[in-house]
Design a protein around this nucleic acid. Structure first.
Lengths: 110, 110
DNA sequence: ACCTGTACTAACCTTTTTGTCAGTATGCCT
DNA sequence: AGGCATACTGACAAAAAGGTTAGTACAGGT
């Protein structure tokens, strides 16, 4: 009896993760917020080439998935900041694994 | 003296990984090939909703980055198979981290 | 002579993702 | 009265990613 091959299905963990964290910016944003909570304008400086629209848009979907939380201080001019939620912190080992992958990949002799 | 925040740059490990492994299919393909080497037609069955074009195209870029290797047996009808390289195996902890993330995410009480 | 299975290529199109740019609201400062 | 700073929103456009379809080559089977 041969070993049963694992078959990829429509709902598998890899796909779930890609849906939650896929794309060019979400992991970078989470990584930055893991260093310290930040305001919009700070995040823009920390991730220099993101556009304001993408930053806001990505923060919004991260919030919808409860990975990031927003605090509005109700001041004028507006002051708002963003921080990781507990769920957001679940992504940190993944980010760490990505960093390890890239570093090891670059160290492999071709 | 405040702690220096880590600033995201144009070439950082997270971005390197996204370039190598980003997109809808590459990680699924690597995950499948980690179970056992496979022919094109087998991969198509194992990843049911990928199109043939995407499968070939993604395999090609994975090969260019030396994450996957191709063996052509020179038979007719053609027989070719694909397997992970050592570099490709470096992605396995990352895939494992994605799986953990998804499972923990789903277990969090809302 | 034709159909089958395998591993592709190429042209074309649709969808998704990302980016640009202009505009809104508010109160303070000059 | 006008400018500044902040955190947005919305219309639109460009670019990237993904998908569909048709076609190639070859040997074996019917």
């Amino acid at each position: 009896m041969p070993t049963t091959p694992i078959i990829i299905t429509a709902r598998c963990p890899i796909r779930t993760t890609l849906e939650l964290l896929g794309g060019k910016w979400k992991l970078l944003i989470l990584f930055q917020l893991a260093q310290q909570p930040a305001r919009l304008s700070e995040l823009r400086r920390q991730i220099p080439d993101i556009s304001e629209k993408m930053l806001i848009q990505e923060l919004k979907t991260l919030m919808e998935h409860d990975l990031v939380a927003r605090t509005n201080y109700g001041e004028v001019p507006p002051r708002v900041d963003y921080r990781l939620t507990d769920r957001g912190r679940l992504a940190l080992p993944l980010i760490e694994a990505m960093r390890n992958f890239a570093l090891q990949y670059e160290n492999e002799k071709t």
